[in-house]
Computed example of a mutant assay.
Amino acid sequence: MSEPSVQVQNAGRLWHEHLHTPFPASLRGVEFGDTDMVLLDTETAGCVITWLDNGGVLDPERTRILQGCIENLDRVIPQITELAGAQYYERLRQLALLVSRALSSTK
């Protein structure tokens, strides 16, 4: 099996876990700086699911959005005080990093 296929499968498993975890209610409507937590979740998830649906390919615009999401995740995760919220966003960050690394390895 090729490396991109393995990366897509690994991300698929982590994505499945993420989908079955409810959004942390305590972060609904919360902003850290100019980052809305619901929007950050939506944008990151949209890039991940597009990459999965396209078999490991992401267009340049979504790649740019994903990089911005990673920067925002790195900035906001340390500010999340609730364990469930921190775990939720850390898993989302892991997904985003996995996709980003996979994209970098195919260049």
Rank of each mutant, 00 (worst) to 15 (best):
67 Q>E: 14
104 S>N: 05
15 W>M: 08
1 M>C: 04
54 N>P: 07
20 H>E: 00
67 Q>T: 15
26 S>V: 01
99 V>E: 04
28 R>K: 07
70 I>E: 13
42 T>I: 06
53 D>A: 12
56 G>T: 04
90 E>N: 07
83 L>E: 02
7 Q>A: 09
92 L>E: 04
107 K>C: 01
102 A>N: 01
103 L>H: 08
6 V>P: 06
70 I>G: 13
6 V>Y: 07
106 T>C: 00
103 L>M: 12
91 R>I: 07
14 L>I: 05
87 Q>I: 03
83 L>A: 00
17 E>C: 03
2 S>I: 06
24 P>F: 01
104 S>I: 09
89 Y>N: 06
84 A>Y: 06
47 C>N: 02
77 I>V: 11
14 L>A: 14
25 A>H: 01
73 L>N: 07
106 T>F: 00
99 V>D: 06
26 S>E: 04
31 E>G: 14
83 L>D: 00
49 I>Y: 06
84 A>C: 01
86 A>L: 02
9 Q>K: 12
27 L>W: 13
20 H>V: 00
69 C>T: 06
13 R>Y: 06
74 D>V: 04
18 H>A: 08
65 I>S: 09
21 T>K: 07
107 K>R: 05
2 S>P: 06
87 Q>S: 09
88 Y>I: 05
42 T>E: 12
80 I>Q: 11
13 R>V: 05
4 P>S: 08
63 T>C: 15
65 I>V: 12
55 G>P: 05
57 V>I: 03
106 T>G: 00
34 D>V: 05
68 G>M: 12
75 R>L: 08
56 G>Q: 02
18 H>Y: 10
96 A>P: 11
98 L>T: 10
76 V>E: 15
57 V>S: 02
48 V>W: 00
61 E>Q: 13
46 G>F: 02
67 Q>N: 15
8 V>C: 13
1 M>N: 03
5 S>H: 10
12 G>Y: 10
7 Q>I: 11
69 C>L: 13
75 R>V: 01
41 D>N: 14
72 N>S: 15
107 K>Y: 01
94 Q>S: 07
9 Q>F: 12
92 L>S: 15
27 L>Y: 10
14 L>T: 10
9 Q>L: 13
15 W>G: 03
8 V>F: 08
27 L>T: 04
88 Y>K: 08
75 R>M: 07
46 G>S: 10
15 W>E: 11
101 R>M: 00
105 S>K: 07
73 L>M: 11
107 K>L: 07
62 R>L: 03
38 V>Q: 10
53 D>H: 12
26 S>D: 06
51 W>R: 12
41 D>W: 06
75 R>F: 13
7 Q>F: 08
79 Q>R: 15
75 R>T: 06
2 S>N: 08
14 L>P: 13
101 R>V: 00
83 L>R: 02
3 E>S: 02
91 R>G: 02
22 P>A: 01
88 Y>D: 12
81 T>P: 01
75 R>H: 05
100 S>Q: 11
25 A>M: 03
74 D>E: 14
91 R>V: 00
47 C>G: 00
59 D>V: 01
11 A>Y: 14
49 I>P: 06
67 Q>V: 15
49 I>R: 15
88 Y>V: 03
99 V>H: 11
80 I>K: 12
3 E>G: 05
80 I>D: 05
61 E>Y: 13
40 L>E: 14
68 G>V: 09
77 I>Q: 14
90 E>P: 09
